[in-house]
Design a protein around this nucleic acid. Sequence first.
DNA 1: CGCCTCATTATGTATAGACAAAAGAGGTGA
DNA 2: TCACCTCTTTTGTCTATACATAATGAGGCG
Lengths: 241, 241
Amino acid sequence: MDDIALPRYLEIRRDIQNRIASGELRPGDAIPSEHELKELYGCSRMTVSKALSALTSEGLIQRRRRAGSQVAMPRNAQTVLKIHDLKAEITASGRAYRCEILSRAKRAPDAAEAARLGQPVAEILALELVHYADALPYAVENRLMNLAIVPDAVSADFSETPPGTWLLNEVPWTDAEHIIRADIASAALARRLAMAKGAACLVIDRRTWQGGVIVTAVTLHYPAARHQIVSHFSPGGSFGA
Amino acid sequence: MDDIALPRYLEIRRDIQNRIASGELRPGDAIPSEHELKELYGCSRMTVSKALSALTSEGLIQRRRRAGSQVAMPRNAQTVLKIHDLKAEITASGRAYRCEILSRAKRAPDAAEAARLGQPVAEILALELVHYADALPYAVENRLMNLAIVPDAVSADFSETPPGTWLLNEVPWTDAEHIIRADIASAALARRLAMAKGAACLVIDRRTWQGGVIVTAVTLHYPAARHQIVSHFSPGGSFGA
DNA sequence: CGCCTCATTATGTATAGACAAAAGAGGTGA
DNA sequence: TCACCTCTTTTGTCTATACATAATGAGGCG
């Protein structure tokens, strides 16, 4: 693995990352000032600055004017969770995707739905559907869409393109919240997911906003026996060696 | 909210973010070239470049030489999951933390443990413990530590500082994997977590590596009734107004 | 028609220099 | 001792410029 082609600022960034990862630089330790690093690496201050800025935005180091840079305190383990679009997730695994719409209603939200939405919404489209991978039920989806933001949803046909996929392509979002929990399948849910009543479900509640206004609230129930969330994480991409 | 103090490149970045979030710029749309933007905003190309680079690393736009910049295709919803240190998590919520070590063994991994570790490890420290928040069991932890990486673990007392916290402060890591799933509590687990047998558990499997070598593999069982994972996400921080 | 070459264009990296802003360090005076 | 002021260091931002690099498109040639 020759690093000859790597740009200078990435080399510097990787070098410092390695020094932190190896324990040579420990949390709280001071990192040489830009002036010193510029001499050390034989480049301009801007180049050093670019490397250190990247490390800062990754949370690996902290910088303060006059006080200098230091290795950040051990961070909470954090990981980036990619919540795939269901249709893409299923077809990507080589299985046939199909969804069945159980109910569809355009109405004002009831009390429970208003609580889920978290803010006053005049009119929603409420959907209940089951996603299938090949013949096997994959997940049950319960979705509320704010018609003030996505009026087109009333005329959309969600049998081909499920609402999650449709929304992703239709509406940009600015904020999202995920709640992941576990639950026991009720009799009705177990029947729909072709699982034993009383077995475990993985539940994901997702809410999405556009500039402070709620776009959609969705709850997905997965049979625990057939689904888990996997996530890999390397801070700052790849380390050298 | 006056933006007067905002540096130029952040202003530009936010402006383009807003244009994308509002739908004015849709996925696939071309973004003016740096040369055009530099005239538009009346600043140097470097400043424009800094703004666009930030947007690129956030995945909001894509850039190709000669071809220019364009709004990225709708991304999979992704969220940053902070896996808090258990002790910090509990004490932060104002409850008293305590942990009880059920078993502790220094030995070679058995077949199942070797599979969990995913690579040959000569000697491990295997721990089983229960975390309490006030008097209530919070989670059961089952941890394997690679003694080749953390030999000091054998002499550490984990009754005050639990192994997760201890490792976080002791060992830098370069890669992590999380698997989140749901399960039903076995009789033994239910007893330890003071929950009903047959109730749901949220399970987190975490593995951590340092430069390709496994450091630790840990499984945490939470009672579903008392625990869920919450995560908020705004791509690129905050949007303006 | 296909392929090669070359010029063009936009981004990517790097530099030197400049000023602004934050914050620690030290001194002064009450 | 403490409040306040100034000095200095270090980071943060910005500019103008330069050259490298990737990709596209046009033109020419067989």
